[in-house]
Nucleic acid binder design. Structure first.
Lengths: 194, 194, 194, 194
DNA sequence: AATGAATGAGCATTCATTCAT
DNA sequence: GATGAATGAATGCTCATTCAT
């Protein structure tokens, strides 16, 4: 990794929390220089503009979550066990290994859906990938005889994702972790009923 | 309604879409003057500041949804029928009677949770009220013998709300109405299984 | 005094402190409506504009001081006694009978000298009148044999006025009443040496 | 002196007259950009806000006067000669070497005394320093046998300062330079009588 | 005579971005 | 590759003033 690449990475990491808490529009270049200790010129030397940083930060924050999920899944041998990683991990969504500021997908989706088509597409892809992972795991579980053949993988995947995202929103805005616990228990029960 | 009250209402109605699509921070006073045809001075003659407009717009947009729900519920005689109004209405969330820009609670919650404590509290109250309505309807349904006594009203209410909110986010960002339909069908099934 | 005249007087009295502490430019119409409890419309119904209020307030505040001086002088039978009223009164310049905010002439002079020719002229007249009073009293005192014939009335009048005005400024900005006391003692000694 | 420091200095010098004639509140950012030829952004890149410029301008204008005094004093060998510099210099207070707009201390003191505690403190310090200089010179003059031991340095210093400040006010507002000449002659006589 | 509501120019300040060095 | 300095448009907000009622 060359110097340029290292600086880019440095900027991304140092501003990751900023973008995920304040949002893209409300994060100013001044916020970014303060968070990094770098100058505006330096940031513009490494990125085309603020939106490009925001995009890369989104990818970075997203990878942080998907990486966490992958790690946990690797330890599980059954498909049910693998899927159960999601409710387990999101129960601890203010764990230090989680991006500060809540779910990156939710935050970004809500900010950009009516205004930033490009970024919207990026979030859409992330969701699609998440859904595909779940669909794959459910179908594999069916084929492996772990789950009933009557399950509709697509619908179940959407249900898991929607409940998790709704749970994050409810928990963050109310400050009641009990909401997250109740809802993740519900998701868990759903998965155990496959 | 005096002139002042009418102008206030006019400003709220004309900027309601603006705030619910762009968000509070990204909606500028210029946007607001263009949407209303009024001057900045006129807006500040009727509201203390932009945040006050945003707050009243939130309440206005919220009432639009709750009003729609109330109307529909009034036509239903059973508790199950009343609760089923939610998935039915949200399936048509881009109906003209719905605030443009998606779910007000979701949009506002995500923008303000880490930054605007006062507005956050307002959203929190709205969610609590929604949840209380559902808990009440479920418990009444149980007492009326409509639903099994084994239902946990609180958990079910959360599940309905979380799924709806997650569904709105997924549908808006992906543009796939099918997501909303699949998820509202799931909520419907849940309610029918009470 | 008709209703209009009474309202005018009311506005002047209620804003007198405002103008003499904040200055003309820094006193806003909002300040004025808050101080009077009247509306902007009402103020504009009684005065052509803010500057006209400021002018009348200047005259009102000025009269407050000159009135105080006249009262005190009336009690004195000698010319020396009359002139000594000035240092005596200014020693108590934060007396409630004195306009709050310090010397009206000083405050207004410094604000308007480079910018408001009309108001400047008004202040200039006030100073001239003050000086003429002093010159008259000194000359009368000379003619009455109270003071030495070697006194130059004009120069002494200026000296008294300048010292008083300088004293007000020094005392207000430093907060040290001792400055006023020392300087008024000096003026007193000067008058006693006539 | 780096570029930033040079620009700062440039802004201070170009706006010095502005602040000393119109006052702080009445000097707008537009006035400042027109006086400097720079943009608002450039001014804010070099100063935290308008008040910071005003503060530095006050110090600059003050130094202009104290510098002038120091130069003149350096040429005098006696303490009396040194003190006499004050009335001599202020007689020429519209000399080009003098800040345009009159006495910085007077102008600033009157504007800020009731409203800007921080700036008020700054003016207070300037006055204290001026008084201390005079007290020092008088006491040294006494010790050197130049002046009578009966002089009260503190009182005399105050008298000189108050008369000068009062003189500036009277002269500026009336436009009569004769006032300044008469009053500075009085101060001169006072000093010669030490 | 007074009010409530509006105007539009003006305010101080911050923004994302550029570019010579 | 990075910096410091600048830009100019945009920000939220306040101003003195007007005028129909």
């Amino acid at each position: 990794m060359g110097k340029a690449e290292r600086t880019k990475q440095f900027i991304i990491e140092k501003t990751a929390t900023l973008f995920n808490t304040k949002g893209i529009a409300a994060t100013s270049l001044l916020d970014m220089t303060e968070a990094t200790g770098l100058t505006k010129g330096s940031i513009y030397g490494n990125f085309k503009n603020k939106d490009e940083v925001a995009l890369e930060v989104f990818r970075y924050n997203l990878k942080k979550v998907t990486g966490l999920v992958s790690e946990e899944m690797a330890r599980e041998s059954t498909f049910r066990g693998k899927i159960l990683c999601y409710p387990r991990i999101y129960t601890l969504f203010d764990d230090p290994r989680f991006p500060v500021g809540g779910c990156v997908i939710l935050n970004t989706a809500v900010e950009v859906d009516d205004t930033h088509p490009l970024m919207c597409e990026e979030v859409s892809k992330a969701i699609n990938s998440w859904k595909n992972t779940l669909v794959f795991l459910i179908n594999e579980g069916i084929q492996a005889g772990e789950f009933s053949t009557e399950n509709n993988a697509e619908d179940l995947a959407l249900q898991i994702i929607a409940t998790i995202e709704g749970a994050v929103m409810l928990t963050k805005v109310s400050g009641k972790i009990a909401y997250m616990q109740s809802l993740m228990k519900t998701v868990e029960n759903l998965i155990n009923s496959f």
